[in-house]
Design a protein around this nucleic acid. Sequence first.
DNA 1: CTAGGGTTAG
Length: 482
Amino acid sequence: MSRRFVPVGRRILEQNIKARYHAGDIGTEDALHLFDELLQVAGRSSIHAINCLLTVVCRDCPALGVSLFNRVARSKVAPSSITYAILVDCCCRAGRLDLGHTAMGHIIKTGFAAEAIVNFNHLLKAICAENKTSYAMDIVLRIMPMFNCVPNIFSYSILFKGLCNEKRSQEALELINMMVEDGGSCRPDVVTYNTVIDGLLKEGEVGKAYSLFCEMLRQGVSPDAVTCSSIISGMCKLHAMDKAEEVLQQMLDRRILPNVATYNSLIHGYYLLGQCEEVDRIFKEMSRNGVQPNVVTYNIQMDYLCKSGRCAEARKIFDSMISLGQKPNVYTYSVLLHGYAMEKSFHDMHCLIDLMVENGIAPDHHVYNILISAYAKEEMVGVVMHIFTKMRQQGLNPDAVSYGAVIDLLCSMGRMDDAMSQYNQMITEGLLPGIIVFTPLISGFCSCGKWEKVDELFSEMLDRGICPNSVLQHNYGPPLQK
DNA sequence: CTAGGGTTAG
């Protein structure tokens, strides 16, 4: 293994790659060329440099990363555990969880399992992103220990974030308590507490969030700017601005510096209450503390303007964002798009979408849903269905909101058979219909007197744990007395 | 060379 036996040419190439990687100086194209060059002369010393190149390619084009890995596997260079970590990450980013699992199986066979925590963690993150946190939980609690791979604080944080995203913060809370009682090497840290406090607040469990915050202090874990921003955001959403300001004051007292996310929450909170003088005050405080507005700040401001019927002013902010040093993102476009939709400015909407595509930003679910509901309001079924098809062509599956808008439209036009086939389609796709789907369907069948369908849908709604709203109570009394 | 948290929208 002595360095002396590494041929000079290879060594120079490897050092060159590592240095350039560190300087952030390797693009995907360069990485591919360097990869070809290195693989021809590669030996056991080359794996570090290969990992650097794989990282670059993986970030930009995960599918290509997987094929490069296969070339490494066929060469005489043995992949390291880090190579496998990059591979699992590639598979997951490419949306190929199946390959991620295969890679993981390979890692276990190769005997890397014990040092493969990072690999498992990549996989856990991808599994949680598909809302399969129960499965991720099984991996952490049962499968990883089976391979002598001890889950670490990262594994738990990924799991907690997944649970919170699925509105299961209560379970995360129980697991935190288990971790504390266990007293082992894996204790909750500031990120763990932040994740679960935020999850509890988002589910409206303010009391439990506060208890956990106190528990965090008892355990000697100091809150940071993220902890405080989460709490402030929670208070703002409850319109409890005095409480939010109190937390801000406590932050300053504890010398925890508020950052742009903290101020954004406050700005959003005051806009929700229409208190523009307070917004101005926060902006001044922000700049006094040297915190620059970011793209989110401008999005919040534009959203307020659009919702107040002041799209033209929002557009001025949009047009000046680049010179303010902030590039509009997909949120920015949808905020403005929604504003135009409220004004029924269809021409502006289409120009904006063209601009967004031109600027390399792909329309997402929100963007399509804004379009769908705008045309649905105009009862333009043909256009709506066309957008639906186009959405699928772009590889985006319509979500419950998209279906809700389409079903609502079909029902309001009395096309109940079409509405039901959309409903069945959404069930087939594994989507959960909410009240926004059941309301138009039940009301629609009510108005054409198809009571057996009404009964059927009503029971199904109750089975799914959805409470009838006031519209349904008004249109359809009997089952409520059940 | 690989892994976790907070801000905005329909």
